[in-house]
């Protein structure tokens, strides 16, 4: 199947400010390559500062890229006009759903806005708004509310309704359940899954929540300091992570079972600043398996079996040893 979205070697550099450009640019994303096929959900995982939100914005042309290429549905997106041309087929859901709604617009106006923007004729805005709200499980009367009058879960549903108004092919969801209670989180995820089945959507879900991504994503891509460190099918990655960072992340997640308490730390230290990227493998400062080669030689993203890839010198052979060392 041809990819719906394909990005090749995408880099994003932000100028660090200063009138005379004296400081070196911040290298937020460093050569990221990803693909999403129609109907697929890709989970983009990483800690804060890993560049995952920047990647989402770069894909939509909201953040100019400084290198690489973005293709959508077989067409290269280069000019701002190219990105504008696909805006009716893509949608972005924000981490803070309430803040993504115009504070002086009612819910009804907000969900029907995509039609106005793209000049799609709508017979009756009120009926259309009601239809969209019902589709995401909200009562039609909600159309008269303002964003600040909504609960977190309701605002999230309004965000989904607006994202789906034009029946897009790709929905990018930035932390779709951040700040929601577990019981509400499940409702939103199920709604997104239902709509995906109904409309054949593809999702790019950006999150740091591994428990969530395990349930919703077909494939996972793990970012560290703006670089892809591991990618592959969800099931395979959770069963047998090949990059020590992925392994640390899965181990760090607190397990809701007091019988599985960790006795020691899975990962130490903090994510380094992108202003001072470590030499060699950028994870070596926190890696429990780092050897000499890791401190000097940057590893390449190696293709492994079953559509997997990992950026580690020992991606092929550390599996057993690494797991033993990590499980103590």
């Amino acid at each position: 199947m041809t990819a719906l979205l394909s990005i090749r070697d995408v880099s994003v550099d932000l100028s660090a400010g200063g009138w005379f450009g004296g400081t070196a640019p911040l290298n937020i994303l460093a050569g990221v390559t990803l693909e999403i096929v129609p109907g697929e959900t890709l989970g983009l995982v990483g800690e804060s500062g890993s560049g995952k939100t920047t990647l989402a914005r770069a894909v939509l042309g909201l953040q100019p890229i400084s290198g690489g290429r973005v293709r959508f549905d077989g067409r290269d997106l280069i000019q701002p006009a190219d990105f504008r041309a696909i805006r009716s087929r893509t949608a972005l859901m924000f981490q803070d759903a309430t803040a993504s709604l115009s504070p002086r617009m009612t819910v009804g106006e907000a969900v029907t806005e995509p039609f106005a923007i793209h000049g799609v004729a709508v017979n009756n805005h009120r009926d259309k708004a009601a239809e969209l709200l019902v589709e995401v499980g909200l009562p039609p009367e909600m159309a008269a509310r303002y964003p600040h009058e909504l609960s977190g879960g309701q605002a999230r549903r309004v965000g989904v309704a607006r994202a789906l108004a034009l029946k897009p092919a790709l929905v990018i969801a930035d932390e779709p359940t951040a700040g929601l209670d577990v019981s509400v989180q499940a409702e939103i995820l199920n709604l997104m899954a239902d709509l995906k089945d109904k409309h054949g959507l593809s999702y790019l879900i950006i999150t740091h929540n591994l428990a969530l991504v395990r349930h919703v994503a077909d494939r996972i891509a793990v970012l560290y300091l703006g670089r892809l460190v591991e990618t592959g099918p969800t099931r395979a990655i959770f069963a047998d992570p090949r990059h020590p960072y992925t392994r640390s992340l899965t181990a760090a997640e607190p397990k809701p079972d007091p019988r599985k308490r960790r006795t020691d730390l899975a990962i130490r230290g903090e994510i380094p600043s992108i202003l001072r990227r470590p030499n060699g493998c950028e994870f070596h400062t926190r890696c429990p398996l780092a050897r000499d080669i890791c401190r000097t030689q940057p590893p390449a993203l190696k293709d492994l079996d079953h559509g997997r890839a990992a950026r580690c010198h020992f991606a092929e052979n550390t599996t057993e040893g690494g797991r033993h060392e990590l499980e103590y």
Partner: peptide, 17 residues
């Protein structure tokens, strides 16, 4: 830079809008 303005840009709204 507010989210709802970025959301408008993501939906393809023109600068005038």
């Amino acid at each position: 830079g507010a989210d709802f303005i970025v959301a408008e840009r993501a939906m393809g709204a023109s600068s005038a809008r």
